[in-house]
Design a binder for these strands. Structure first.
Length: 257
DNA sequence: AGTTACCTCTGGCAGTGGAC
DNA sequence: GTCCACTGCCAGAGGTAACT
């Protein structure tokens, strides 16, 4: 019998549930039930208390690799974003991580070095390391290397794919543009410019279309600019230097604004 | 090339004791 | 003797590395 608090002699490194079982005088299965909180009705209260005490004394921590192996899931999800230069993505991560934690799942952030292009698999075998993938402002096709055709995928701010096994959460782009246009019109603006991000993605294309529709019948000039402060500034200066310059400029992104 | 060990979890089942 | 609730154990699955 090992001294309380010290690992049994045959335990080469960290204690296992088998060590706890041996020290507590119960089966390994009973240890599993107690420590996973599913013991009521199957293990006596006194026994459960003893198992917990022994586990604490030995410093037992479940082996996550073995648990993942047994359960076939890792309680880990990956959030892929095309960049970390925008506060928007920081907000996405914070919110997603909070909700994931509330469901007992960890969230790993992966700013893809390829931007919105096809993302590489950061794990080598993401399908074995993850339970699911979340992606913000990226096309589902760009995530093929990471998720294959098996990992669940939730897309944020991306083209909906009817029929595909993919959930999509989108902003109310058209409604937002309508409200924005109505607000600017109410302020008396009649000449508009759209400082559009020079990025070929569904969200920016959709925003442009929605804005065009909302401002139909007005003077709307669209200028494309790199998604950066310097690029947007240069494009805006050019725009404001033209005759009949716009009185209101709508930007695709906070960075450009 | 085939076998074993690693570690955890869980469905199914056996043993025990109390009530009727 | 039968039924039921409670308690705890057995067996097997899962991927990979080490071993035979």
């Amino acid at each position: 019998m090992p001294a309380p608090g010290s690992p049994p002699p045959d335990s080469a490194s960290r204690p296992t549930s088998r060590d706890v079982a041996r020290a507590a005088g119960v089966s390994q299965a009973a240890v599993s039930l107690v420590l996973s909180g599913k013991w009521r009705g199957r293990v006596g209260a006194a026994t459960a208390e003893r198992v917990r005490e022994v586990a604490d004394g030995l410093g037992y921590r479940p082996n996550l690799a073995a648990r993942n192996l047994r359960l076939g899931r890792t309680r880990t999800a990956l959030l892929v974003v095309p960049a970390l230069t925008s506060e928007f993505f920081a907000g996405v991560y914070t919110g997603a991580a909070r909700v994931a934690a509330a469901h007992g799942t960890g969230l790993v952030l992966y700013p893809s070095p390829e931007g919105i292009g096809p993302a590489r698999d950061p794990f080598g075998s993401a399908r074995a390391a993850l339970d699911g993938v979340l992606a913000s402002s990226m096309a589902a096709e760009a995530l093929a290397a990471i998720r294959g055709d098996t990992l669940p995928l939730v897309m944020l701010d991306a083209r909906p794919r009817p029929g595909a096994r993919t959930a999509t959460v989108n902003l109310a782009l058209a409604d937002g543009m309508r409200k924005l246009a109505a607000h600017l019109r109410a302020l008396g603006h009649r000449r508009f410019a759209h400082l559009a991000a020079d990025v070929d993605s569904w969200t920016f294309t959709s925003r442009a279309a929605a804005l065009g529709e909302a401002l139909a019948g007005t003077s709307l000039t669209t200028v494309r600019a790199p998604l950066s402060i310097a690029g947007a500034r240069e494009a805006a200066l050019r725009l404001l230097d033209t005759p009949g310059r716009p009185t209101a400029v709508v930007c695709d992104d906070d960075l450009m604004a």
